[in-house]
Write a protein that binds this DNA or RNA. Structure first.
Lengths: 142, 142
DNA sequence: AAAGCGGTTCAAGCCGACTTGAAGTCAAAT
DNA sequence: ATTTGACTTCAAGTCGGCTTGAACCGCTTT
């Protein structure tokens, strides 16, 4: 059972040791134990770190991710439902935005954000209160 | 030609007036002008704000979004290419993560993050250095 | 014995994106 | 005449997520 010192654990996940200390302090990922006062990390902890990394790259706050990770049975599943819904929304928005940017890129106007009628029209709808989510969804019906 | 005071402009976009002042100060969105010392916003500025809103919700830093918006012709298109690529990556990651969470949700284990073999296996691959992008891409080939 | 390495704690600093508070201006409504 | 409301500036505060710096410890290598 390999138990890695902080530096090695951090290296594996592409993080700085200070980050792991910070996570420890915040109670997000506590080391498996201490050996001579030094933090040592095991598989479980590395997995927790990996999980947090994924969550974080998707814009989920560390706090929320940590809670999902610690929630038992039912609560865990509920937390996941929320995150899945959030991801579905994110994906829809991203696809809408992508189409939008692709259009902008292909538009012959010199300054599409000012001249392109499609782009301007879309922005104007936002200005008039239509949430981007909706515009994105229209253009990209799930 | 309607020129809205800061409060009205902010309301239209669901922002706080202080946010618009902040954007002005940072040079991201300057009001169309001043009337009696007060900021007034026109269509162009509202569109800029809408654009920044979209960008921001996708995790693009304000600075970057503002630069894309101001870049002329070729540079604009280059900036867009980058953002489109970034979005493609984001979408791929999000879809991978979604599958991952869906699996976790459907896993009968009490604590999937600890017990579910698929989940644990995935996390372990990350621990061993495989970037999540790659794992996500495998599971969700574009 | 001294230097280097990798850890330790604690406090402070930094960045982005704002928000909040204090003090003032101005026009319209009571 | 005064109060209300929306604005102005400027300085400072907040929050998340770290990083940095100072001082120290214990082991190994030179």
């Amino acid at each position: 059972m390999e138990r890695l010192p902080i530096g090695e654990a951090a290296r594996r996940l592409g993080l700085a040791p200070s980050t792991l200390r910070y996570y420890d302090e915040r109670g997000l990922v506590r080391p498996a134990g201490r050996v001579g006062g030094r933090r040592v990390y095991g598989r479980q902890e590395l997995r927790r770190l990996a999980f947090l990394q994924i969550a974080q790259r998707l814009g989920i706050p560390l706090q929320a991710a940590g809670e999902v990770l610690d929630a038992p049975g039912e609560r865990w599943r509920k937390g996941l439902e929320e995150q899945i819904a959030a991801l579905d929304e994110l994906i829809a928005r991203a696809r809408g935005a992508r189409d939008f940017l692709v259009h902008a890129r292909d538009c012959p106007a010199e300054h599409p954000a000012r001249e392109c009628p499609v782009m301007v029209g879309l922005l104007d709808r936002m200005v008039d209160g239509t949430p981007f989510e909706q515009i994105a969804a229209e253009h990209h019906p799930s």
